[in-house]
Amino acid sequence: MNRPVPLLLLGLLIALPLSLLAGRVWINPFDPHTANAAVILLQLRLPRAVLALCVGAGLGGAGAAMQGYLRNPLADPGLFGIAPGAALGAVLSLWLGAGSVWALPTFALIGAGGAMALLALIAGRDGGVALFTLAGMMIASLAGALMSLAISLSPTPFALSEIVTWLMGALADRSWRDVAIAAPLTLIGLAFLAATGRSLDALTLGEVAARSLGVDPRRLQWLMIAGVGLTVGAGVAVAGIIGFVGLMVPHLVRPFTDRRPGSILLPSALAGGLLLLVADCLCRIMPLAGGELRLGIALSLLGAPFFLALLLRMRKGLV
């Protein structure tokens, strides 16, 4: 049952063209004389919008899969340590001052891949969820510590400022090159996550009952590593750390589905894309002295009260 899908598709159909028109320079579609309209649309706003959809869909889909896999409504894609791993890669590239435009995303993807490999190596042969999660938390903690070390030993104030700014997450000044990096990896990752649907449904009944229903825990673990790794790794590589999307989006769509983890995967991916597209557009048009509001900051500001509301609802037994 996927009732929210048509609605979300409609929302995307409306939001995408509108988001292209909004920004520091407003483009009137009925006035063909706006200066540089074609360049602004095709080289600045369209890649940015496509990137928002990619990164948001990846984070939303990964968040839904993580919550289903861990059977926990508070789970977030960051828990597996893949986002911190990718961020560590990116920080190292800035720290080393790697000059090529490909360096940062490449380093970030290597970081994500390293976290995935470490996770696969540590995780138990029986595919147990608890050990796997602890391994992810250890990797996240290690990557966080190494990032702090890199920041504290920053070679120049410029590198320090670049690292801190990048860690805040944003989609400003991105190009088709970033889309070419993120889109294929995100799509492949989402395909892996889509393949987990039935197994995640079975996990609703716990690990033992899921195995009795034919779930192969090792296969599921591999699909999760590949799916979350590719979507989150690609997202961090092009946009930095953008928190709370993976946590919030599944909760927003769950009430409109039959609540099976498999049935919220697609709506979460669509809603994640829509949320990031709208949020990025609002960041762009919000009047703020000294540039635009960083997307990562905006979503964290939105996410923290959401998280609190979620905790209060859980206390009342409503989640």
Partner: peptide, 18 residues
């Protein structure tokens, strides 16, 4: 037994067809 998500009875029973 455990049931992680607040699904309906019908959805729960349908999991048996996985």
């Amino acid at each position: 037994p455990e049931i992680a998500w607040d699904v309906s009875v019908e959805t729960l029973v349908s999991l048996g067809r996985l």
